[in-house]
């Protein structure tokens, strides 16, 4: 039962990622870019000069045939990882992406262990 749940969870995650590689959605990219001159807004939510410029640049890059990942790495080269709302999968961030699932697995193991122990006593 638990194992099935994990399979579902992981399957879903893989699926999301596959999905995102296939087509380049402008508005999705906008939502993932932080407006550096605003207070915690994405460029999709801002009309500042900076956000407008960045939207134009994103449009150009899409027209040049760049993938979503290439656009992110181009911009994070210029402005740092701070500009991306979805942190990259890399060595620095593996705890961020990994720990929630690790906690989920450990939690599941503890519960199974706990119930097993109880049922033995019974």
């Amino acid at each position: 039962m638990k194992f099935k749940i994990f399979l579902i969870v992981f399957f879903l995650n893989i699926n999301i990622n596959l999905h995102s590689n296939e087509l380049v959605e402008e508005s999705k990219i906008h939502k993932n870019l932080r407006c550096l001159v605003c207070q915690g807004q994405s460029i999709a939510d801002s009309n500042s000069d900076f956000a407008l410029t960045l939207k134009m640049v994103v449009k150009d890059l899409i027209e040049q045939g760049k993938t979503e990942e290439q656009i992110y790495s181009f911009l994070s080269d210029k402005y740092g990882d701070w500009i991306l709302y979805k942190p990259k999968f890399n060595l620095d961030n593996f705890l961020l992406w990994g720990l929630p699932y690790l906690a989920l697995i450990i939690g599941g193991v503890i519960i199974v262990f706990f119930i097993r122990k109880s049922s033995k006593k019974a």
């Binding site: 995650n13 993932n32 932080r34 740092g80 990882d81 701070w82 979805k86 942190p87 961030n93």
Partner: peptide, 14 residues
């Protein structure tokens, strides 16, 4: 010394 942002796309996908 690396500033990163963690925003909606992270939470939604996890």
């Amino acid at each position: 010394n690396n500033k990163i942002s963690v925003g909606p796309p992270f939470y939604n996908s996890v």
